[in-house]
Design a protein around this nucleic acid. Sequence first.
RNA 1: GGUCUGUUCGUCUAGGGGUUAGGACACCAGAUUUUCAUUCUGGUAACACGGGUUCGAUUCCCGUACAGACUACCA
Length: 511
Amino acid sequence: MSIERRVRTRFAPSPTGPLHLGGVRTALYCWLFAKKNGGDFLLRIEDTDQERFVPGAEEYIIESLNWAGLHYDEGPGVGGPHGPYRQSERKPIYRKYVDQLLTAGHAYYAFDTKQELDDMRERMTKAGMVSPKYDHVTREYMKNSLTLSKDEVDARLAAGEPYVVRIKIPRNEEIRLHDIIRGWVSVRSNELDDKVLFKSDGMPTYHMANVVDDYLMNISHVIRGEEWLPSAPTHVLLYKYLGWEDQMPQFAHLPLILKPEGNGKLSKRDGDRLGFPVFSLNWTDPFSGETSSGYREAGYLPDAYINILVMLGWHPTDNKELFTKDELIEAFSLERVSKSGAKFDPEKAKWYNHQYLKMTDNAILAEAFLPQLKDQGIEINLEYVQNVCGLIKEKATFMKDFWSLSSYFFKKPEHYDEKVIEKKWDAEASLFLSALINIFSTLTDFKSESAHKGFEEAAVSLNLKSGNYMQLFRVVVSGQASGPSIWDMVALIGKDEIVNRLQLAMQLYGK
RNA sequence: GGUCUGUUCGUCUAGGGGUUAGGACACCAGAUUUUCAUUCUGGUAACACGGGUUCGAUUCCCGUACAGACUACCA
């Protein structure tokens, strides 16, 4: 293993639908590891299964990655020295390696039809085998170049009979592979099946394509989900048979992301069923028309999303929880990725978003808030919006909460929290609010402190406890029972409007 | 069923042969001179079980249990 090897990682999704949480996290770890080591991160589209092709999926994947800020150095649309980066476009490349395996005797032709395969499985199942494999024993009873005579094989090939190429798994060997996260893993070859390498449609399967492409693209580290661990030994064998042992990438199999309730890995099929999105972006299935929501549209900030995902299976050396991308690149290492699956916690995800919202500059928030305001028919100067954002971001979990949290900064309340009105508006309240109107009206300098002072004065003048009317006052001004610091809010709305709203409420509820 | 992988508070996790087993989310309580969904302070809460090894094991080893992944001409 050369010490000088340049770090190159790849994210290799199959365009069979939208990208979900786990996929993005895999991409994130690949990206982080590459950046951390000054290497390259590539995107490769694994579309060797034309039957599962879903229109729009590739675009969706790319857009998801871009939204999350995981820009790739090589890949579709970007190019690079090892292209093309779509396996369907690399089709002619694979044949040569399949032939190499065939001539070396590490692979063989198999002519079994779907029916024959099914029959074999049924037979074996009846014989008590739970999941029959095409392996070193069953292949003896099947139609392949190991059981058929050379003449017959040639004849079938010449006749254009459909065939697949399977790897010939050796008997009684122990296959060891080193995983950065899990250490040494070993399997006996007899447990492995003769996987199809080359399909009858002329396309390689994942196993073949992935090994060939990783080699050709000079991938140094294969970082992927744990679901690939069982087939990794087959891949190791492929590197060996192709004579690429020296360039074999290092493996790191990531723990799975599990459903919050119960068990099992979070899957695309979970959609919105669990009460939170599993996808990055909104998605409409082109076949069924079914729509699923995404984190972007749900109001998550990209950096918050990244932060949520990175903590699902990785942990820094200290107890730090909030990271910028640069800090993540600095802190990340595969050695600190945990081995066990992580249940996704939607509540904690919200907390992260809230933290990021608070950290975001008011100017940026205001800019993002503008479209919502426009939809509400509000036109107002940007500085005011920025100030509003500064006050309400403490209270918001999502950007989309902004309007409901702040509408009263832009127009008079249309409804008042009736519970508070009922509970707090007594005879004294009317006296108090009248006094407040008078005092506020005389103020020339209407700021947080002066408004607060005026409020206290009104209470003192009537010998009342100011605290008793605090929440009522908030409701009168905003219609809502809770919100940001009351005096800051009042000062921002301004004296005339506040007095106005007090009078309005007196007309409605005054006793 | 078989193979592989895993198992520290409800959840994400830190730690590691001798610790009051640490942090975060959630939850509960108090505080912010009784606005609040923010903030602050405090609290409840965990080493799956059984055997070893050891002066000592939550930490190392072996079993058991449980969980998950895989078991297609899908990736």
